[in-house]
Computed example of a mutant assay.
Amino acid sequence: MAANRGGGIQQLLAAEQEAQHIVNAARTAKMARLKQAKEEAEKEIAEYRAQVERDFQRKVAESSGDSGANVKRLERETEAKISHLKAETEKISYDVVQMLLKHVTTVKN
């Protein structure tokens, strides 16, 4: 019976050692997968950052590259609006002056 007990202990020790190897292998695989996932995430972040930077640079180039054209366009639009306002003012200025004179010279009791 003592020999049987010694063999059972040896089996338990061997099973425990095998379980420890399995746990260690799983832990190593988990660490490797986490490292791989981190590297993949960093790569995706770098690609996204590069894409956003390219989009930003393109927009900056579009807005500043033809800023002279934008300035000229805005100047034309401003001049057109000023001319329109002056024309409207000339059309109604006589009527406004007459209305003001009427209200100023009218005496109410």
Rank of each mutant, 00 (worst) to 15 (best):
E90H: 03
N70E: 12
A87S: 11
D55L: 14
Q98K: 15
E79I: 01
A32H: 11
K81V: 03
R33N: 15
T105C: 08
K81C: 04
I45T: 05
V107I: 13
D66Y: 03
E40Y: 08
D66A: 08
I92W: 09
A80W: 07
I92D: 06
A29R: 06
Y94T: 09
D66I: 05
H84T: 05
E90T: 02
V97R: 05
A50Y: 12
S64Y: 14
E53Q: 13
E75M: 12
H84Y: 07
L101T: 06
A37E: 15
E53V: 06
Q51C: 03
V107D: 09
S63N: 14
E40G: 02
E88G: 05
V96L: 13
V104F: 15
E39F: 09
L101W: 03
G65A: 00
D66H: 14
V71E: 07
M31Q: 15
A37T: 13
D95L: 07
E77L: 09
G65H: 00
T89Q: 02
E88H: 04
V97S: 00
Q57W: 05
S83C: 09
A32E: 15
K81T: 03
K38R: 15
K81F: 09
A29H: 10
F56Q: 07
A32P: 02
V97I: 15
V96W: 01
I82Q: 01
E39R: 11
E88S: 01
E62M: 10
V97L: 02
R54A: 12
A61L: 06
N70C: 05
E62L: 12
E40T: 11
Y48G: 08
M99E: 10
K30F: 12
D66T: 06
K91Y: 10
K30H: 15
E79L: 07
E39M: 13
L85K: 03
E75N: 08
K35I: 11
E42P: 01
L101Q: 10
D55Q: 09
I82R: 05
Q57K: 08
R54T: 09
R73I: 01
T106L: 11
A29S: 11
Y48P: 00
S67L: 14
M31N: 13
N70V: 06
V107Y: 12
T89G: 09
A80Y: 05
A50F: 09
L101M: 13
V52D: 07
R73T: 07
K35H: 14
E40L: 14
T106G: 07
S83D: 08
K91F: 05
K38N: 05
V104N: 13
L34S: 15
E47F: 02
S64M: 10
M99Q: 12
K30P: 00
A69H: 05
R76D: 12
K59Y: 04
A61F: 02
L74V: 03
S93H: 06
A46R: 11
G65V: 00
T78L: 14
A61M: 04
K91S: 07
K102P: 01
V96T: 09
A37P: 02
R54S: 09
Y94E: 14
K38Q: 12
A69G: 11
E90L: 12
